[in-house]
Design a binder for these strands. Structure first.
Lengths: 236, 236
DNA sequence: CGAGTAGTTTGCGTTAGCGCAAAACGAGGC
DNA sequence: GCCTCGTTTTGCGCTAACGCAAACTACTCG
């Protein structure tokens, strides 16, 4: 098994406040794996046997209803953990994780978690912080879904993606992984039709440039205005 | 300051796996306080200086938009913690907490948290579990808001409240604290008008009995059916 | 290079649920 | 016992967004 270079991950929040030795010891318990684009990393409902740290690529976590409808829980960016079912006391994965781009991950067996936490309590504290942050983001999303209309929710979603995984171009910010209208719909609680209509509208106003699984924000500032305007303030 | 009886709280998930001595030491750092009905415990945006454990009563955590709209994040039941801003790395409270019934809480200064966690790592692990559970519930709520219609969401919300804070009566289950149509609307992402219409409908079918800030589920089983039926299956 | 497939756009009819407004109700205070 | 105020109910019109269907586009694979 190839050794993981500690310098690549030392700065991550997960490892905040740890000595190089500690980090080394933690990394020794992990193996790494590569998942090609569109391959599943784990399935919702499966026994949770590992937890993951994304090194390269992008992963989509999605939840499916009994009726087969899906929502996107989040997109995982490099440096973030996912599949923490065991840390939060779940025996099964509550969502499906799929690589949306060729991805490289570190994998720890869940059996290592209790031992690591005992030896390095900072691990639990750091994880608590990230889970807490996600909880807050979740609440923000609920607030948006309750109070804003679709156009604003889409604006917020794209801005968040741009912030998390945006690649600066000279003519705007490109979202750095393949994402479909359907995906955006599943992030915002709407339909791909409505997303398509709204993006078409924005495109004709020069706010975005978009194509097949590809979105470039050309006028991020104007999209911020869209996102923040309150329900009543109308169009031109 | 009155000493807190350890036997009342020893069984709580927060203190799982702790010795009586440890528990005693933790409780020594807390003070208790009483909040009358409809009084605020902390306000969204205020400096987070304490965290809380609810002993008696019920507390509503709500988030407000800049425009003044509110959503209910959750209702806190006795035995649950709230106001954990610091544990999850936030300097300010992300929501407002208000006692919906006369309530008694334990209060720790945030300054005690790092020390307690260092001395009792199980505290961080236990908190991680509860925060993780809340995160999952949050995701479930997003899933519901995205895929279900209002009637089903209300059904789910009431069933959850009944499970968490239901009082068994011989003719049904009563939700054990004052809750208005507006509150339910803010839990489900709809308006008090729509909630009122739907509850009226249920009342005339004998599914619930409800009045001013008071709801009794008369036919919980039939409400479960409502909650679970998929979008297409129509009415009689 | 050509067929097939997955993603996107767009038109059109429908509707769930909103928003306003007004009336009815009920609990608590004086 | 009467008045007041907050909650609930209900009618009515409206519209944002859905859902279906069909056309269009652009990768991918053979």
């Amino acid at each position: 098994m190839a050794k993981v270079d500690t310098s690549l991950v030392a700065h991550l929040p997960l490892f905040a406040g740890m000595t190089p030795d500690a980090l080394d010891e933690i990394l020794r318990e992990a193996r790494s794996a590569r998942y090609p684009r569109n391959s599943a990393i784990f399935e919702q409902g499966a026994d949770a046997q590992c937890f993951f740290l994304l090194l390269h690529g992008h992963v989509r976590a999605a939840k499916t209803t009994p009726a087969g409808e899906q929502i996107v829980v989040r997109y995982v960016a490099p440096g973030e953990t996912f599949g923490l079912a065991m840390a939060i006391g779940a025996a099964r994965y509550p969502a499906t994780a799929m690589a949306v781009d060729d991805s490289v991950v570190l994998i720890w067996p869940n059996s290592a978690w209790p031992r690591l936490v005992e030896r390095f309590p900072a691990l639990a504290a750091n994880t608590l912080q990230t889970v807490g942050t996600r909880l807050q983001e979740s609440h923000t999303r609920i607030l948006e879904m309750s109070t804003q209309q679709v156009e604003q929710r889409i604006a917020h979603a794209l801005l968040r993606l741009a912030k998390q995984s945006g690649k600066k171009l000279d003519h705007g910010i490109e979202i750095d992984f393949p994402i479909s209208r359907q995906d955006i719909a599943q992030m915002t609680g709407t339909t791909l039709h409505t997303v398509s209509r709204i993006l078409s509208g924005w495109e004709s106003q020069g706010l975005v440039e978009s194509g097949r699984q590809r979105i470039i924000l050309r006028e991020p500032h104007k999209i911020v205005v869209l996102a923040e305007r309150s329900a009543d303030s109308g169009a031109a």
